[in-house]
Design a protein around this nucleic acid. Structure first.
Lengths: 349, 349
DNA sequence: AGCTAATAATGAATCGATTCACGAGCTGCG
DNA sequence: CGCAGCTCGTGAATCGATTCATTATTAGCT
């Protein structure tokens, strides 16, 4: 690998001049510029990014720390982030934590040593146990929280409007004539899960339906818990006529439960899920879902992160970007046998 | 951020000594060692990985270059690669090329400047147009090809046994009584697609069924082409009794086509797909698939890559690891009305 | 011509680590 | 005692870029 010195020697100029040609900042005479460019071409010289980073204190590298890329929500987020990053010349490194705090700790330690310029993070549920996130921000490395907001940390955040998403979905269920709605939520440690549950509560209240704790189950956002808790709910008496599952992976588990109990969906048990479910628009029954703009979440978050890195955002205080959910109504909540109940329309748009 | 100098000053030793304590290679007296460790703790010192890289010429960074993380095959691959990488202290950077050669070119240029230690790559279909891959290997950066093998390049490769996967699946279809089997393959530029098609050919031949070109369609491994070509095939006369789609994304498209044509699956048209299909084991009809060990592909590939980097593999010549596919028989190829045909059993296990 | 100003080019210092030739201080042994 | 052979520790050189003070050259103006 040729270095800048070899280029300089071959072009019979100083390394400073080569550097100037490369950066274009300082004026360089036509004659020398040509010689340098020729040498660069002839040697097939590519500047060493490592050496640059050492001097400039910038790595042009971002990290994205998520629970598990295997969770179908994340690939789009990562894709969005990579697109935004590469557009501005940044690299994206990826870390899976499986929502384990200890792993998150390790990752942040690595990120610090690597002098990453900025971090996109889906905080783990126990993230408040540690101070590494706060320390990183303190040390001047910008952080943007994805999907979940970190408690007590002044970092920017980008997420879907979880309250609204759940609310419009429950409204829809109510409009379809459901009053006994079983809800499978996520770890209540997570703001995200609490927000979604809050959305349910609001929709029920505005319809005058009492919030029945006996119909709520707390899962862990994983398939198995969705399956188990759905079975549990569907075996209570009287059986809920609809299930609303607050994330996609649990939603698939819930569908499996419905099937195993030989219930028809939506006739015996309607199903709505927060998050797009892979295949949910192709296979039967096609699922009603609250769709998150996952790509956009990743893209916007990375954009904000890069703007912070380059001090292109004036305001000191954290941005909290809230994106619109979209309710996609499909078969799994189709009208019940008796047709949709004619109730009062919800009071708000 | 404290530097090694500050640690040295605080511990009243030379930087060399601090470095020795850090690396543990050279013997350092108990007294000084204690002083250094204390200083490190007190300053909360973390060595700068950039500076290390500059000196050591190793970045401890791998890259994974894939077409699109959004394709459900890849998250598991990436996860496997990340697990293997982090286990050995490597970072993983991710790049999506959308199978576009130009983008692949850019990415390789970046990787060169970044002095990445090794590259996992799913080569783009036109990859043979360029020499960057060969140049990278030439320059001493190990490369492992994932999923697809690169033509004319001596790089290690890890992939599923595509011929075998297709073969056992077609055998299964034949055993279920199908003789008119429509096949939707991928770009024939890709070795992968050719191998799978070859598997089909072999299975047909061993059953004595002529290979009917009229039942083959070449898609591009994307949803839309699966949908379109499946419709096309299903409208030919006589209609194929089964469809075998050679990747997952097209498989979903094909299922959509079956549905829109109001055909029952498997009664009117059986469906088998190469690749796991998300939700394919939950929703109806549950799909018969050839499952690839995607996680293992990523994991093993990263392991091999790291071994190459550290010269832990003696052999010069490229490894070509071929992993076992698994046929998962489910509803979508269940026995036809008349029951499975009683044909001669396939001659091999 | 003489002076200032502007422009070009240089090369040493710097970033933060590792490495290694060298030297200091001991020990052991004849 | 004197010297070989240890063990420890030092600090300058190095990795490959950028930066900036300095110098050399030319241009512009009176």
């Amino acid at each position: 690998m040729p270095t800048i010195k070899e280029v300089a020697r071959r072009a019979r100029v100083s390394v400073g001049t080569v550097s100037n040609v490369l950066s274009g900042t300082s004026a360089v005479g036509a004659e020398l510029r040509a010689r340098v460019e020729r040498a660069i071409r002839e040697l097939d010289y590519h500047p060493d990014h490592i050496a640059r980073s050492l001097k400039s204190r910038r790595t042009h590298t971002l990290a994205i720390v998520i629970s598990d890329i295997t969770n179908p929500f994340f690939p789009l987020v990562v894709r969005g982030a990579e697109d935004a990053a590469s557009k501005r010349g940044y690299l994206l490194t990826i870390f899976n934590t499986d929502d384990q705090f200890e792993r998150e700790r390790q990752v942040f330690s690595v990120l610090r040593m690597r002098r990453v310029d900025g971090v996109l993070v889906v905080v783990s549920p126990d993230s408040d146990k540690g101070t590494q996130l706060a320390e990183m921000i303190e040390a001047g490395t910008p952080v943007v929280c994805l999907d979940r907001r970190a408690p007590h940390v002044k970092a920017d955040s980008v997420q879907v409007d979880n309250v609204k998403g759940a609310r419009i979905c429950v409204r829809h269920l109510i409009a379809m004539g459901h009053a006994r709605i079983g809800v499978i939520t996520g770890p209540c440690k997570l703001q995200t899960a609490r927000d979604r549950l809050q959305g349910c509560r609001l929709a029920l209240r505005e319809a005058g339906i009492p919030f029945n704790k006996a119909l709520i189950r707390e899962g862990d956002f994983r398939f198995e818990s969705g399956y188990r808790l759905a079975k549990d709910l569907l075996l209570t008496h009287p059986r809920p006529t609809a299930l609303f599952v607050l994330n996609g992976t649990m939603g698939m588990g819930a569908y499996k439960a419905i099937q195993e109990l030989n219930l028809r969906c939506p006739e015996d048990a309607a199903l709505a899920v927060f998050d797009d479910v892979p295949g949910g628009d192709v296979f039967r029954p096609q699922l009603t879902v609250v769709s998150q703009p996952a790509y956009e979440i990743g893209y916007r978050a990375a954009e904000i992160l890069i703007q912070r890195i380059n001090h292109e955002i004036a305001s000191e205080r954290p941005l909290a970007l809230s994106l619109e959910p979209e309710l996609k109504i499909r078969e799994s909540t189709a009208a019940r046998a008796g047709g949709p109940a004619q109730m009062n329309a919800p009071s708000e748009g």
